[in-house]
Design a protein around this nucleic acid. Structure first.
Length: 345
DNA sequence: AATTGAGTCAACCGCGAAATC
DNA sequence: CGATTTCGCGGTTGACTCAAT
């Protein structure tokens, strides 16, 4: 209750910190600890409010702060944890040594959120957005209108070409979205990506969609060409080996449920940034005897296979989410790295 | 060279919870 | 036990940089 008046006090400096101020603050805290933040500025000889001092210390001056770009592992950890915790930046930061909540929040807002949106996923729910279906006709109409205005009626043929091209691209987006939904629903109907349901995933419609996506952008004159990892390849309609070009998803067991995650105190989690090599078939670090049947109320996972797993700091196997974040799925990785997808998205 | 727009990130603001009186 | 103070969190802002025009 009650608002801290410290920042409202007049005469206190605001804005960027100078190196002298940093030095004063650092020296004082290293010598005395921060104690009462409210009292600190006076004691340290700073014309700042305590709040500003605390922020400067926790986000910038603290000696254990790691600076620089986020690694792939950190990015995946953030995605995983965000899918469980939402915008609990401090909770997420507690699993990323040396990273501050502010830094993670910024990274999310400037990079990860956009990435998910570009992929057609809702950054809050980590699930495919369905709104694009309903808005597609409107978007097309707007785009066509703009083209019309830009080119005028004297360029009818050019306008037609543009419209056709845009319509084709929009259709690609729609198909991609639909494909994601199919993958999602297929996955959800079985609770999680288990080996069996992956084999079940031979729906002709989906395969046709994949093929149409692939053929539109790959060298159709050279169907046997080798594609870089992450790019789409044509799907062979061979039910015995569907998606043979994908990573071996069958090595991954059913991930733990969200309930399991929820039942663990957040502080007990420690991100383990690589798959547990001692149990390569158990990347979730779940004891083999665990009953990991997701509850009906748990967040249904998208098609998610992640190499990031989570265990608590007691060394006990606990859980990561059954919902490891879309960006960690093999499919999502493919989408991320697919130049055509990035272009149209 | 000047302008503009997008991206980034440090810092601020307001709120609620916890701690203290 | 209620009032007040302090702290920490999450959302937002604005200064800065850089690339494109």
């Amino acid at each position: 209750m009650g608002r801290s008046p410290c920042c409202d006090e007049s005469g206190l400096k605001k804005g960027p910190w100078t190196s002298e101020e940093d030095q004063k603050l650092m020296k004082y805290i290293q010598k005395n600890g921060h104690g009462s933040w409210r009292a600190l500025p006076k004691l340290a000889g700073l014309n700042r409010c305590g709040k500003s001092c605390r922020l400067r210390w926790t986000n910038y001056l603290r000696p254990d702060i790691k600076r620089g770009k986020f690694s792939q592992e950190e990015e995946q950890t953030i995605l995983n944890l965000h899918s469980i915790l939402g915008n609990k930046w401090s909770a997420i930061a507690s699993h990323l040594p040396g990273r501050t909540d502010n830094e993670i929040k910024n990274f999310w807002n400037t990079h990860l959120k956009k990435k998910l949106i570009q992929m057609g996923f809702d950054p809050m729910t980590h699930r495919p957005r369905t709104d694009i279906f309903s808005s597609l006709p409107h978007l097309l109409a707007l785009v066509n209108l703009k083209e019309l205005l830009d080119h005028g009626s004297s360029h009818q043929s050019s306008w037609d070409e543009q419209a056709l091209r845009l319509q084709a691209e929009a259709a690609q987006i729609a198909r991609l979205q639909y494909l994601q939904c199919l993958l999602q629903s297929n996955n959800n109907s079985f609770g999680a990506a288990t080996p069996n349901n992956l084999n079940d995933f031979t729906d002709m419609e989906t395969i046709n969609l994949l093929n149409s996506l692939c053929s539109s952008q790959l060298d159709i004159q050279n169907p046997t060409a080798q594609y870089p990892v992450g790019n789409f390849q044509p799907v062979v309609q061979d039910n015995s080996v569907p998606f043979s070009h994908l990573p071996d998803l069958q090595a991954y067991p059913t991930p733990p449920s969200k309930d399991m995650v929820d039942n663990q105190a957040p502080d007990q989690f420690t991100a383990v940034l690589s798959q547990d090599e001692s149990s390569p078939n158990n990347p979730w670090n779940i004891p083999s005897s665990s009953n990991t049947t997701p509850s009906p109320t748990s967040v249904a996972p998208p098609v998610t296979v992640t190499e990031a797993s989570v265990s608590n700091n007691m060394g006990d196997a606990c859980s990561t989410s059954s919902y490891g974040g879309v960006a960690t799925s093999a499919w999502s990785d493919l989408l991320f790295e697919d130049p055509f997808f990035n272009e149209i998205a």
